[in-house]
Design a protein around this nucleic acid. Structure first.
Lengths: 198, 198
DNA sequence: ACCTGAACACCGTTCAAGT
DNA sequence: ACCTGAACACCGTTCAAGT
């Protein structure tokens, strides 16, 4: 329902009637609308659980954060909850714990794990939010509707950039950012290994 | 008013009475609440205008995006509008045009400018949103309130990460991400220069 | 041109009352 | 235990009416 009509359109009353019930009945299951939204956030978190398996830790990290972008595209409206609501439920802490475990397996100490976790999360949520915005219009919409402006020639650089920012190009841009961060993480690990050997 | 009480608390009626006027009078100046929010977004954009001057282009870019983080900290509530609302007004296009001009001065072509603009913007907005969340609690709050949990020993890795994620450390983490992206941009420029010479 | 006040169709939340 | 229905204090928006 959120994905179909947007977060702003969700109301306890409308959700109630959608479930064939008087909206006020929901207060028997959730103390408030905020608690209901936390439950929605938990559903998203389940969808982007870090994979186990035999893959290299860095590859598993990459897969996890790529999953985050896919979730954002699949649930564009509810994804807003991820960067907006505090993470304080047990399910959310479990998620962090699992993710930090992979950083540890890769060879990062607590400080490095915290740092690169934040850097990765910042890039991925920022890129996902931007992509949601771009996709909200047409399937291959330009991020700015230049067509609606009288004199597009007043913005030559923006006009030149537009073809490179179509929805079909956003995956490649995301990968540039991810490559860049994971390369830095690999260098950091190599530096650490050299020091340990010395 | 938004910064003091939050975006959700802003209503046409409350804003009206704060201005000593019947809320409905605002509809003579803005067609809708959305248009009013666009005007607020424009005020933010003015505050983070790219600097001119004699600095190297890459340094000016860095200053601009660092300004973005400062605005987020100064206006934590209204900053949400930046990654959330579409940029389609003239002031917003002017902003893009100026920013892309600096990418051009640095030596990037249209495709590279678009790519690194998106990567930088994704990281900076993502990091800013996360920092706003962390700061929302106490001045030096941990991002997660571990104290409220019965058994913090169930989350040893999260507990170990917490001291590295205090508000006082977020500036350093932001710089790690920025260093990483600007280093990659410098490499890209160096590659281009080598090719041109060849 | 600018503001008011009533009205419309909604909100989240509380609470006594039903089964 | 689970749901209802009325009530309270709000929303954004419209519109005829005032000055």
């Amino acid at each position: 329902m959120i994905d179909a009509e947007g977060l702003e359109q969700l109301s306890m009353r409308r959700l109630g009637t959608a479930l064939g019930v008087e909206g006020m009945a929901l207060y028997h299951h959730f103390a408030s609308k905020g608690e209901l939204l936390d439950a929605v956030l938990e559903l998203l978190l389940e969808e982007m659980a870090p994979p186990g398996g035999t893959m290299a830790p860095l590859d598993r990290l990459r897969k996890t954060f790529e999953a985050c972008r896919r979730i954002a595209i699949r649930h564009p409206q509810s994804f807003l909850l991820v960067p907006t609501r505090r993470f304080t439920t047990e399910a959310q802490l479990d998620y962090y714990e699992k993710l930090l475990a992979i950083f540890g397996e890769a060879g990062f100490d607590a400080a490095q794990s915290a740092t690169y976790f934040r850097v990765l999360a910042a890039f991925v949520t920022g890129a996902s939010l931007a992509e949601i915005g771009s996709r909200a219009q047409q399937p291959d919409a330009t991020p700015i509707r230049l067509e609606t402006f009288d004199e597009p020639q007043r913005y030559p650089l923006v006009s030149a950039a537009v073809p490179h920012l179509r929805v079909s190009k956003l995956g490649a841009i995301f990968d540039v950012g991810m490559d860049l961060i994971f390369e830095a993480m690999q260098h950091e690990l190599a530096r650490g290994a050299r020091k340990t050997r010395a």
